[in-house]
């Protein structure tokens, strides 16, 4: 809503924080709730970022996840599937917090032999000259040191990029000279988690025990949302 005569400039896509009104120091730092001991070695550390995965994991009884710890003030939970595989589920979608979340995950990331991240994005954000009718496009971003995780998709074409905790984790691994692989799933319907490709991915990463295409109650109902 604007008043008559007011000049309305498009809100800058660049300024995430207001640099012109400096500065109330935000001293709120995040920390682990239980402060669990960091294991000496982890075979694979997985980061799941995006509603589709999270809804699916939370609603299904066939996941293998056991709660380990969580970060206060934001929605980040750490699970393990066994002593050698940890899964971090990131619900917080504030990009400004992502580097701090990565900082808290750093001890786990450093001791891990391999790191895999999965995130979902709306298909509309996928930039390509090719016109396609696919409902789900999966691409990878790999560090210079090759990840041993056997999940292979085409590399993410420029100018597409990934952001958030997944990007931070892969950047950190690259800068430390360690291996890692980011998987990004572009979905037509971002809330949709019945897509077989996603479930197969979770199964191949040993997060769920079987591919289950049964649907969620709300999406199945006659409610139009």
């Amino acid at each position: 809503m604007t008043t008559y005569g007011e000049i309305v400039e498009p809100y800058t896509r660049a300024c995430w924080e207001d640099w012109d009104e400096l500065f109330e120091e935000d001293s709120a730092r995040f920390e682990w709730v239980r402060k669990e001991a960091i294991p000496n070695a982890i075979d694979c550390f997985i980061v799941l970022e995006g509603k589709s995965f999270i809804n699916y994991i939370e609603n299904k009884s066939n996941t293998k996840l056991q709660y380990v710890d969580s970060i206060n003030k934001i929605d980040v939970t750490l699970y393990k599937t066994n002593e050698l595989q940890y899964v971090c589920v990131v619900k917080d979608n504030n990009l400004l917090n992502s580097s701090e979340i990565v900082d808290l995950l750093k001890p786990y990331i450093i001791v891990s032999k391999d790191v895999v991240t999965l995130q979902t994005k709306p298909l509309a954000e996928y930039q390509s000259m090719d016109v396609t009718n696919e409902m789900c496009i999966i691409r990878t971003v790999c560090t210079s040191h090759q990840s041993k995780t056997n999940v292979n998709f085409r590399k993410l074409e420029q100018p597409n990029i990934i952001t958030g905790v997944s990007a931070g984790v892969i950047c950190l691994r690259e800068h430390l000279g360690l291996c890692g692989k980011a998987l990004v799933c572009y979905l037509e319907y971002i809330e949709e988690h019945q897509i077989e490709e996603l479930q197969s991915l979770l199964k191949s990463l040993n997060i769920v025990s079987c591919v289950d295409a049964t649907s969620n109650n709300i999406l199945d109902s006659n409610l139009y949302i």
Binding site: S99, C142, Q158, T163, A167, C171, E174
Partner: peptide, 25 residues
């Protein structure tokens, strides 16, 4: 290449060379 907690993480392949497999941060 610089990694810092002060920067919002972004990663993709080299934007100046479409055939490159080097990461850009």
């Amino acid at each position: 290449s610089v990694y810092s907690k002060a920067l919002i993480p972004v990663v993709g392949y080299d934007p100046y060379d479409l055939n490159s497999s080097n990461l850009s941060c």
